[in-house]
């Protein structure tokens, strides 16, 4: 599955983790409190009286793509591709930043899940990508 690790400096501006499962959602000056719990398989979100179960990119990809799961990397949510940091054929180490996505004023780094070689890139900068659609492949 896609591991989106988080360095200390990329706390997203639109959604701020407050700790202990609480999140501050900012829309300009308007704020809301949300709650969320992520497991390896899925993420539960509570916002304004509604609970949502959001599948992880891995489970969504199982439903929507025939590509070999271990090698395909996909967006966790509808997002815009802002940067592609690698090119086809490039060897990458685990946790190398591959693609930077953006959604809801929030950056979503897609990193290499392990050491490998980029075999194909399926997205381009500026493209709006959907969850489950592979962005690139690593052998």
């Amino acid at each position: 599955m896609v591991r989106v690790s988080k360095p200390a400096d990329d706390v997203p501006p639109g959604v701020v983790p407050l700790g202990n499962g609480r999140y501050l959602v900012e829309h300009g000056s308007r704020t809301q409190i949300a709650y969320a719990v992520a497991s390896t398989r899925e993420t539960w979100v509570f916002l304004d009286g509604r609970a949502y179960l959001v599948g992880s990119s891995a489970t969504i990809r199982q439903r929507t793509s025939a590509t070999d799961e271990a090698d395909a990397l996909a967006a966790p949510m509808p997002a815009t591709v802002v940067r592609i940091e690698v090119s086809a054929g490039q060897t990458v180490a685990k946790d190398t930043l591959l693609v930077m996505l953006e959604a809801m004023k929030m950056e979503l780094p897609i990193k290499a899940p392990r050491d490998g070689r980029v075999t194909a890139i399926h997205c381009r900068v500026g493209e709006i990508v959907q969850p489950g659609v592979p962005l690139l492949e690593i052998s």
């Binding site: 690790s5 706390v11 719990v37 992520a38 916002l47 949502y52 949510m77 809801m104």
Partner: peptide
């Protein structure tokens, strides 16, 4: 879409869940 964003933030910051220790790189 905002829920997707919250979920993405939770996957980024809260993998340990509310019970375990948070990621020690979490500035909060």
């Amino acid at each position: 879409v905002v829920v997707e964003a919250i979920a993405a933030a939770a996957r980024v910051s809260g993998r340990a869940g509310p019970f375990g220790p948070a990621d020690d790189t979490d500035p909060w």
